[in-house]
């Protein structure tokens, strides 16, 4: 065991090493590690935020979906209602049209019956006149007995 100048020499070496570490090793390393810690904290915060955003978006999309379903259901119900209405209207129209057609046909039939009756009457009258003429022959003057003939015709 001998204390000698190495004591001072080693102390100088030590001082230089500490100075070097203070200048070039410790500050950059600790700064970098702090930076990394900050980055990790940021990353975690961002992940949390993203999670929250995702949850919000999921909720919003679920709401939208529900709304859309509701709207669709409403639309379908409306359409069904409208379809039923249209069918009803069509039925009514058809009925009215049918009635109208029946009525038109009836009146036409009546008209035709009337005219047929008229024609028939005329023919019967003519026939009656002709028959009477044949029976009476000369005795009846068409011109003189026109009134009589007309009244007979009217009675037929």
């Amino acid at each position: 065991m001998e204390f000698n100048a190495s004591l001072i020499g080693q102390a100088i070496t030590f001082a230089i090493l500490v100075w070097f570490t203070m200048k070039f090793v410790w500050p950059p390393l600790t700064r970098m590690m702090d930076e990394r810690a900050a980055r990790i904290a940021d990353g975690l915060a961002a992940a949390d935020r993203a999670k929250q955003d995702l949850a919000n978006a999921e909720k919003a999309s679920a709401d939208r979906l529900r709304e859309a379903k509701q709207q669709a259901a409403e639309l379908i119900a409306q359409a069904e209602k409208r379809a039923a209405q249209i069918v009803d209207e069509a039925k009514d129209q058809a009925k009215v049209e049918g009635d109208r057609l029946v009525k038109g046909a009836q009146s036409e039939i009546e008209q035709q019956v009337q005219s047929a009756r008229e024609v028939l009457r005329q023919q019967v009258a003519d026939l009656a006149v002709a028959g009477a003429e044949k029976i009476l022959k000369q005795e009846i003057d068409a011109a003189r007995h026109a009134d009589l003939l007309a009244s007979i015709k009217a009675e037929l």
Partner: peptide, 23 residues
């Protein structure tokens, strides 16, 4: 026990080399 005219060269060089390794 005290002899400040002496110096341990082995201690000096080994410690210095290791100091350089560390630094």
């Amino acid at each position: 026990i005290f002899n400040f005219s002496n110096m341990h060269l082995d201690t000096f060089w080994v410690a210095l080399a290791l100091g350089f390794l560390f630094a």
